[in-house]
């Protein structure tokens, strides 16, 4: 179904000047309806599409999950297809924080510092059982779930998750963002 400009409440020059024929541009395009040759979108959708296509992760590998996170960069599970092979070391340049591994209480403060240094919009994936909920380590040393200190968008289970599982989590994050779901800090209304 063709959506016409007037359905958006816009008045094109065709309406204001009914007797004007097709413009030079329309004649060059060679189609009946200009709308069939152009893609129409809103600015938010276009920006979101661009953000998903190059969401750069931060190098935050902690433990065993970090080795599987390195595996998604490798040739078999190539994450460069999604534009994400550029792992930025500086959190100021990163969009996505993949917390991969168990977070001890000593490491919790640096983790929060890194999250604070990231610039909006930013997302967090809790990779693995230890980051999601403390995993098998229900003890004095491990933070029982990284969502106690940072707002998490996607939780990826298993110990360690297969690279394909992590990629599924990343793709679901992309889809959620394309659909308009705001990042977790907005949903939970916490300080960023």
């Amino acid at each position: 179904m063709v959506t016409r400009l007037r359905d958006y409440g816009l008045q094109s020059e065709r309406l204001l000047w009914p007797t004007k024929g097709p413009s030079h541009f329309e004649e060059e395009m060679g189609v009946e309806d200009l709308e069939q040759a152009l893609g129409l979108t809103t600015l938010e959708k276009a920006v979101r599409w661009a953000q998903t296509k190059s969401m750069w992760p931060d190098t935050f590998g902690l433990a065993c999950c970090a080795i599987e996170m390195m595996a998604i960069v490798s040739a078999r599970y190539d994450i460069a297809r999604f534009g994400m092979e550029a792992f930025r070391s500086s959190p100021r340049q990163a969009d996505l924080l993949i917390v991969s591994g168990r977070v001890s209480h000593k490491m919790a403060a640096p983790l929060r510092q890194i999250y604070d240094q990231m610039v909006e919009p930013k997302w967090v994936i809790a990779m693995g059982a230890c980051a999601s909920s403390g995993g098998m380590f229900n003890n004095y040393a491990i933070l029982q779930g990284v969502d106690r200190i940072v707002p998490v968008d996607i939780y990826v289970p298993f110990c360690p998750p297969r690279p394909e599982a992590l990629m599924e989590g990343i793709i679901r994050l992309h889809e959620a963002h394309l659909a308009g779901v705001p990042p977790a800090y907005e949903r939970r209304q916490v300080a960023t």
Binding site: G134, F137, N138, N139, Y140, A141, I142, Q144
Partner: peptide, 14 residues
Amino acid sequence: HPLRKDYPIGGEPV
């Protein structure tokens, strides 16, 4: 000193 026997295991109750 966590590894002593009179120090609790910690974590959260399940």
